[in-house]
Design a protein around this nucleic acid. Sequence first.
DNA 1: AAGTGTTCCAACCGCCTTTAG
DNA 2: CCTAAAGGCGGTTGGAACACT
Length: 244
Amino acid sequence: MGKGRAACCDKSKVKKGAWSCEEDLRLITFIQKHGHQNWRSLPKQAGLLRCGKSCRLRWINYLRPDLKRGNFTPQEEDTIIKLHQSFGNKWSKIASHLPGRTDNEIKNVWNTHLKKRQLIHSEAKLDDSSCAYNSPSSTSVLSHANTIIHEKEEAKRSCSSSYNINASSSSLSNLSQVEIISSPKIVDMDWIFQFNEEPNNYLELTRVLPDDGIIEIPLESCDHVDIWDMLDIMDPPLQTGQWT
DNA sequence: AAGTGTTCCAACCGCCTTTAG
DNA sequence: CCTAAAGGCGGTTGGAACACT
């Protein structure tokens, strides 16, 4: 062994940056078939030019099927604020109280929205307490301001799609069909991802149901498709903890 | 329309902890 | 018990998208 800590992977041979659709599907397929006993060896076995850590992060923060993929609700945000008061920046601890949410996601929401809001709150409270003529409506003004902030953020976020597949990518052509078979733990979760090359390369998602046979959901032939919107339509309600 | 500033979040980095031999 | 490998965590950043001028 050399001096110091060995690098987790050969940085010169791994791909970095945003994950492609093909990489995501490779990772999902591999984990559904074989699980993730060893993250370090997983990329090689799955045919991914990625660092094991990167695969783990991608799976945990984005691909795990039990993740909630919508915006945070005001209740969730309140929970984060309360938990942050007790735990501080222990994001994984906070995440353990919010099923379907990741530590990374919570950290981002805190840093981008909640921290600011908390600041406004504390400033407002300071103004409140220092004001000789303490208005009886100050609390309701504060909560109204809070609602407005939340609504604005909500509206802003709902406009942006979180994930796009470039279905016309030429790199998909050698992945003509990826069959996703459920692990014994996952009931009612059989998928076939199929890439049709004619007429204009499109992604077809097929769900195999135990009794009803096959439902085919062809996607529009377009360049960008939101995979999670599609999955949300078809997803059976997943029990929490299935993928942990 | 173009340039610049700001916001947001996915992904990376490096340290710490846990586990296996 | 010791050591190295692997996993987990929190801080930070790159760059895309959006807002403003």
